[in-house]
Computed example of a mutant assay.
Amino acid sequence: MSDLTAVKTPRPSVLRKLGLDKANTQKWIFLFIAIVPPFGGYLLFTLFPNILSVYYAMLNWDGFTDATFVGLSNFVTAFQDKYVWRALTHNLIFMITVPFFVIIISLLLAYLITNKTYKENKFLKVLFFFPNVLSTVVVALLWAFIYDGSYGLLNGILKFLGIDMGNFYWLGNESTALASIIPAWVWGGVGLYVIIFANAMLGIPKSLYEAAILEGAGHMTRLFKITMPLVTPIIRVSALFLVVGTMKGFEIILIMTNGGPFGSTDVIGLYMFNLAFGIEYRNYGYASAVGMILFVILVTAKLLIDKFVPNKGYEY
Rank of each mutant, 00 (worst) to 15 (best):
P12V: 06
F30P: 01
V237L: 15
I234A: 07
L52E: 12
W85D: 07
F100A: 14
I204T: 08
I253E: 10
A184G: 06
I157E: 05
G156R: 15
S175A: 07
I96Y: 01
V296D: 01
A276D: 10
P99D: 01
F128H: 03
N91M: 06
I268R: 00
F45Y: 10
I35L: 15
W85R: 10
L192I: 12
I96C: 06
K248G: 04
L294R: 02
L154N: 05
T265N: 08
V231G: 08
Y83N: 12
P310N: 02
W85F: 09
K8M: 14
P131V: 13
A57M: 05
Y55V: 13
I182P: 01
G203H: 03
S150Y: 12
E120G: 09
Y314N: 11
A6T: 15
V186P: 04
V231A: 08
D3Q: 14
N274I: 04
A198R: 00
R236G: 03
F123S: 08
L44A: 14
N132Y: 15
P37H: 01
I113V: 14
K119C: 01
L223C: 02
I226D: 05
N173A: 13
T114R: 13
S13T: 14
D164P: 04
G218E: 06
P12A: 15
V299G: 07
E251W: 02
G291F: 08
G41A: 13
V76T: 11
L240I: 14
Y169S: 14
D148P: 08
S180C: 11
